[in-house]
């Protein structure tokens, strides 16, 4: 039997490398997937430009953050980016509405097939991608300031006397807090307000919504505003936690799609749950459990290999695998989304 301390150490180890990172990544994906799912259920297409919208919003936040920093404005222990977030959201809203007016509206009026929307959204993806790279360049940007850690592994070790350390980055707490606020606000809006209910009605049955006098243009407008806000928030949190790189954000598209589809596309709760499912799977499947089992197993049974299901390089592939499996086994997702 392992000693009690060893069990504690194993739990701390697991928390440090799996639980905490997966929770914050899951929250970021959940916010992103909410945007994908809202576009899908109200505008009725899979938006391939969503990752790049996220990149654009985040880029705006970064530029404004730099502006604030050069003016000497800071947010105390919190990252300045949080102050810049509302302005970044405005920029992303502007871009979304511009593309809606110049591109999507035409096909919406024509009632084009979803495939056509997918193709034009890739056009928007190209353009947004180019705008971001043109303005901020293709390379890595870090824009995190303020306090980095709530506590460091060393402090944790000293405090608890355990041999394993646990780090808690302030961005991780921040991510979860902001995500909870954003999701709660969104759900309140959708469930309790007149406009939110109108959006759900429009998503549920467009013709009947029109017969009830719901103004489709207004629904579309509000959808883009919410989607842009969610995308910018998700992107900023991801960038604070890790770093900002246009290509990475483009690649986030697939885990976000995966999260939305796994949860049940069109279902906001599904998007949130899906985000965590994807994040946890990615981290759990690619974590090497060797040390974890050393703590828990008697010496004679200690594992020889790394005890890893898939090498870390496959991290991104995990979400695609889950996506494909879900599409095949249960295309409506965990929370029955809109049927195919």
């Amino acid at each position: 039997m392992p000693e009690f301390v060893d069990i504690l150490n194993a739990i701390v180890l697991f928390s440090n490398f799996v639980l905490v990172p997966a929770i914050s990544y899951g929250a970021q994906l959940a916010l992103g997937a909410l945007g994908v799912t809202l576009v899908y259920s109200i505008l009725r297409f899979s938006n391939f430009a969503h990752g790049d919208l996220m990149a654009f919003g985040t880029m705006s936040v970064i530029l404004i953050t730099w502006g604030f920093q050069s003016m000497g404005i800071s947010f105390g222990p919190l990252p300045t980016a949080l102050l810049a977030l509302p302005f970044g959201i405005l920029c992303a809203i502007g871009l979304s509405l511009m593309f809606d007016k110049t591109v999507y509206k035409f096909y919406r009026v024509k009632k084009s097939a979803p495939v056509i929307f997918v193709i034009v959204s890739t056009g928007v993806m190209f353009m947004t991608n180019a705008i971001v790279r043109f303005i901020i360049g293709p390379s890595d940007q870090r824009f995190m300031d303020g306090t980095k850690f709530i506590f460091r592994p060393r402090e944790f070790k000293e405090f608890t006397g355990l041999s394993e350390g646990l780090a808690l980055k302030s961005t991780q707490v921040l991510t979860l807090t902001v995500a909870i606020i954003a999701v709660a606000a969104l759900f309140y809006f959708l469930q309790k307000t007149r406009t939110g209910k109108a959006m759900r009605a429009f998503s549920d049955n467009e013709d009947l919504a029109l017969l009830s006098g719901i103004n489709p243009d207004r629904v579309v407008l509000i959808t883009w505003i919410i989607v842009a806000a969610l995308a910018t928030t998700a992107g900023t949190l991801y960038g604070l936690d890790k770093s900002f790189k246009p290509f990475t954000y483009f690649m986030l598209l697939l885990p976000m799609f995966a999260a939305a589809i796994v949860g049940g596309i069109g279902s906001p709760i599904g998007a949130v749950v899906g985000g965590f499912v994807i994040a946890f799977s990615e981290v759990i499947v690619t974590y090497a459990y060797k040390k974890f089992f050393i703590y828990l197993m008697p010496e004679s049974l200690e594992p020889s290999g790394l005890m890893q299901f898939l090498s870390t390089d496959y991290k991104f592939a995990v979400s695609f695998i889950i996506l494909v499996v879900v599409l095949l086994m249960r295309p409506t997702g965990i929370f029955k989304g809109q049927s195919i």
């Binding site: 007149r194 209910k197 109108a198 009605a201 998503s203 049955n205 009947l208 919504a209 006098g213 719901i214």
Partner: peptide, 19 residues
């Protein structure tokens, strides 16, 4: 397709009165 299937009965009635 004459109801909002994913919404409650009460919400259906509310949507009817949207204007």
């Amino acid at each position: 397709h004459n109801v909002f299937a994913g919404m409650t009965v009460e919400e259906n009635l509310e949507m009817g009165a949207f204007l």
